[in-house]
Simulated assay, not measured.
Amino acid sequence: MHSRAEYRERRKAWRLLTSQLVLALEQTRVDGRIDVLLHKVDAWGTVELLHTLSKSSLLQLFKLEKKHIKSSFYAVAERVQPHKVDALQAVVTWKELHIANFGSGKEYYENGLNRDVDDVLSSFGTKLIHLGRLN
């Protein structure tokens, strides 16, 4: 049996998530809703994803009962504006990232999620803290 390269295996879940988000944003109507199960609110990829969703929707985070996996939570994006520039750019970025996922590690990081931490935290950090406390 043919095995996948290790770097591809590590990115499989992220590929699936971004593919689902592309489909969701492309199919969601104005003022629609997207629910997504995420893990580790403080992981960089999750922070960037929440930041992106917050630009074109009203974002809330919810944690289920104690039987749920400790690090997992639901992000609920309501009143989604899929035609806003930020949402359209997210779709383009996620599609490019999806393609980059099949390349080498270098290609992935050159084309992938590489925003400056200071920029994201200065524009989204306070809201992230507020959202995370509710989680």
Rank of each mutant, 00 (worst) to 15 (best):
M1D: 12
A5L: 07
A5C: 03
E6H: 03
R8L: 10
E9M: 06
E9Q: 12
E9C: 01
R11M: 09
R11G: 01
K12H: 12
A13Q: 01
W14Y: 13
W14R: 13
R15F: 12
L17F: 11
L17N: 07
T18Y: 11
S19K: 14
S19Q: 10
V22M: 14
A24Y: 14
E26Q: 15
Q27C: 13
Q27D: 14
R29F: 11
V30Q: 15
D31Q: 14
D31S: 11
I34E: 09
V36L: 05
V36Q: 03
L37P: 04
L37D: 08
H39R: 15
K40E: 13
V41N: 09
D42S: 02
T46Q: 09
V47F: 06
V47D: 03
E48H: 01
L49R: 08
L49W: 15
L49V: 02
H51W: 08
S54P: 00
K55L: 15
L58Q: 13
Q60N: 08
F62Q: 06
L64R: 00
K67I: 05
I69K: 07
K70S: 11
K70D: 09
K70Q: 05
F73R: 02
A75N: 04
V76L: 09
A77H: 06
R79L: 14
R79Y: 12
R79S: 15
Q81N: 13
V85P: 02
L88G: 13
L88S: 12
Q89P: 03
A90S: 06
A90V: 07
A90F: 14
V92H: 01
T93K: 12
W94T: 03
K95Y: 04
E96D: 13
H98A: 13
H98L: 15
A100H: 10
G103Q: 03
G103E: 00
S104T: 10
S104R: 02
S104W: 02
Y108A: 14
Y108K: 00
Y109S: 12
G112K: 11
L113D: 07
N114D: 10
R115D: 00
R115F: 03
D116M: 10
V117N: 00
V117G: 03
D119R: 11
D119P: 09
F124L: 06
L128K: 01
I129L: 04
I129W: 00
H130A: 01
G132V: 02
G132E: 00
R133Y: 04
R133S: 01
R133I: 01
N135E: 00
